[in-house]
Design a protein around this nucleic acid. Structure first.
Length: 267
DNA sequence: CCCAAGTCCTGGTTGC
DNA sequence: TGCAACCAGGACTTGG
């Protein structure tokens, strides 16, 4: 596996390599979606939604293939150009000829689609264990935190340590664990690390159970918004009252990201 | 003008 | 002093 084998979706030949390959499954590590493809060579399609990406899945009307343009008598069914944010439209067909459209939309263009040969993209190998369901525990965290001086929140956002924690879940986990996001990693006590480890799992589980966090754009594959935003305790609550101690939530910047926390009960 | 769910790259700092 | 690991900040992008 070399870097040169990784193809960005903008490269020539990307689509030609992809068409005709069977999608063998759908896997996930952290924020990356991983689709192993059939055929020789161990090809993988890798997707990342970035901040505003969406994947929409719809069933195509059954009844054979769509009429070819210019074949005479064809009826215009829809015009996709109206969806200016669509980056890709994958059309999959099963053995019975049923078709599924998978639309990758991405308003801010931070999302990524890559095709690699010889296995998953290299950078997936640099990711830590999956923060939600991966094999790690408080000991794993404690060992990595020891002697680091960076703020604990910067550590949580670094996907090389744990994969899958973003800005929302970092702020929420730290609030529930009662830890100041700016604290140096190495300064956390054993009890704090244990609380944090438990809250990371719990907040991610809660987010999944609520089908995600919709601040403006996020929807699931059927276009439905999530509900986790309704129970946020820290993220985005600057100036509001802390539901635990009553102090006013404050905002700062950690690792270049907006960070909201309670100066009263997060220490 | 400020802010926003993401990652990657660069260049400076720290400490073994 | 040498070298890695570490860390802060900016770039990218579009919209509210």
């Amino acid at each position: 596996m070399t870097a040169s084998m990784l193809r960005d979706c903008s490269e020539a030949g990307f689509i030609a390599e992809l068409v005709g390959r069977e999608v063998m499954g759908v896997e996930r590590l952290g924020k990356f979606l991983l689709l192993p493809l059939g055929g020789p060579g161990g090809w993988h399609l890798t997707l990342h939604l970035g901040m505003t990406g969406q994947i929409l899945v719809t069933q195509e009307p059954s009844g054979g293939t769509a009429p070819a343009v210019g074949s005479g008598g064809a009826t215009l069914v829809s015009v996709d150009a109206a969806d200016v944010h669509a980056r890709f439209v994958f059309v999959l067909e099963d053995d019975d000829g049923g078709r599924v459209r998978v639309v990758f939309r991405d308003m801010r263009k931070f999302g990524r689609v890559h095709l690699t040969a010889g296995g998953p993209a290299e950078r997936l190998g640099r990711l830590g264990p999956d923060a939600w369901i991966g094999e790690w525990d408080a000991h794993y965290l404690a060992e990595l935190l020891r002697r680091r001086r960076a703020p604990i929140k910067a550590f949580l956002l670094d996907q090389r340590h744990l994969a899958g924690i973003g800005n929302i879940y970092a702020d929420e986990s730290l609030w529930w664990a009662g830890i100041d996001p700016t604290r140096p990693c190495g300064a956390l006590s054993v009890e704090e690390v244990e609380r944090l480890a438990a809250e990371i799992r719990r907040q991610l589980s809660e987010g999944v159970a609520r089908l995600g966090c919709t601040l403006s754009d996020f929807v699931d594959t059927e276009g439905r918004p999530g509900g986790f935003q309704e129970q946020l305790q820290a993220y985005g609550r600057r100036g509001q009252t802390c539901s635990r101690c009553g102090r006013t939530m404050t905002r700062t910047v950690v690792a270049g990201r907006g960070t909201t926390y309670c100066p009263g009960c997060q220490q």
